[in-house]
C-alpha cells in the first residue's frame, strides 16, 4: 500500500486499488501533470452557467412494472468466482 498521506494514496484507498510505492510515485507525478492541464478550466467564466444536461428526452424513459427475465440465473451463478450453494462468498467481513 502506498502511504495514505499522499493524495494518490488516498485516491487509491477510495478506489480500492492496491498501489505499490513505486507505482504510486509514477502515477502521482502523472496525475499532477494532467491535473495541471485540467486546472486550465478554472479560467473559464462559468458564472450562471447550468451544469450540462444530456439532450432533453422525447419520452419519459420509464418502464412498465412487468417481469422481463434476461438471463439464465444458474449460468450467471456458474460464473461467480466463489459460491457456497447459491450464495456468493467473500472473505468474512463485519457488517
Amino acid at each position: 500500500m502506498a502511504n495514505d498521506d499522499t493524495l494518490v494514496g488516498e485516491l487509491a484507498r477510495l478506489a480500492h486499488l492496491e498501489l505499490p510505492p513505486a507505482r504510486a510515485q509514477v502515477l502521482g507525478a502523472q496525475l499532477e501533470t494532467i491535473l495541471g492541464y485540467i486546472r486550465g478550466l478554472q479560467a473559464v467564466d462559468v458564472e450562471g452557467v447550468p451544469e450540462y444536461l444530456p439532450a432533453e428526452q422525447v419520452r419519459s424513459g420509464l418502464r412498465d412494472d412487468i417481469e422481463r427475465a434476461d438471463m439464465d440465473v444458474d449460468s450467471a451463478l456458474a460464473g461467480v468466482p466463489l459460491a457456497h450453494d447459491r450464495l456468493v462468498a467473500v472473505p468474512k467481513f463485519k457488517d
Binding site: L62, R63, D64, M71, V73, A76
Partner: peptide
C-alpha cells in the same frame, strides 16, 4: 437465495438501469 436476480441486479457489465413507472 439468488433466484430473484437478473443481469442488472448482479451489476453485469453492459447493463443499464431503467426506472419502474409503478
Amino acid at each position: 437465495p439468488n433466484t430473484q436476480i437478473d443481469a442488472y441486479t448482479l451489476g453485469l457489465p453492459g447493463t443499464l438501469p431503467v426506472p419502474n413507472r409503478a
